[in-house]
């Protein structure tokens, strides 16, 4: 015997099934998360300042004014953490390109001749871009104690009409 489901019934069915899928997924997800080694805390602090703090609580951030001063006095090395394509389209004048994706492979080549105590300012683009933060952490890890992040560096630099250049570094990537 054919039981045709009425429109009202199908909506009802849809609702409870959707609820069931959500409940099963949430339970499964939270349970699995609790037991995996790289589990996330259910809640953590996401403010940009706290994400850019070192384990010691010290901030990795450098303000644009300070970075500008260092740029003009030539006392800082700028590292572009974005992809080579973006770097080619435009970067801070004199910046070296160390894309975060290939940091392992090119670290030594790019960082050649830079002393460990040099002021290194990494940047990428966008308030929430994490590449420069990751790169700076890597720098600290490798003993470059004077590394900083210029948050939203590329956009800020362009907005303030600071010196930029285009094109790839010869022979790299």
């Amino acid at each position: 015997m054919i039981q045709k489901t009425s429109r009202k019934q199908i909506w009802y069915l849809g609702f409870w099934q959707m609820g069931a899928i959500v409940i099963v997924s949430v339970t499964l997800a939270v349970l699995i998360n609790q037991f995996r080694p790289d589990r996330l805390p259910l809640v953590s602090v996401w403010a940009p300042e706290s994400r850019l703090n070192l384990d010691t609580g010290e901030s990795m951030v450098i303000a644009l004014g300070e970075a500008k001063g260092n740029f003009h006095s030539g006392s800082a090395i700028f590292l572009d953490a974005r992809s080579p394509e973006h770097y080619e389209q435009g970067h801070i004048l004199g910046a070296r390109n160390l894309p975060w994706e290939v940091v392992e492979k090119y670290f030594d080549a790019v960082m050649e001749g830079i002393p460990k105590d040099a002021l290194i300012i990494s940047y990428c683009d966008g308030e929430s871009c994490a590449l420069s933060k990751d790169l700076t952490q890597e720098l600290f890890f490798r003993g470059y104690d004077n590394a900083r992040v210029l948050v939203n560096g590329w956009s800020l630099w362009v907005e303030h009409h600071l010196p930029v250049e285009k094109g790839p570094l010869p022979g790299r990537f």
Binding site: I21, V24, S25, L28, A29, N33, L40, V43, S44, A47
Partner: peptide
């Protein structure tokens, strides 16, 4: 901020389960 981790934990499993359904 309160919902970011929870979303990141739950959403992928929801997508997987939903896809299987």
């Amino acid at each position: 901020d309160l919902l970011i981790n929870l979303t990141a934990i739950v959403l992928p499993w929801m997508e997987l389960f939903l896809g299987l359904c």
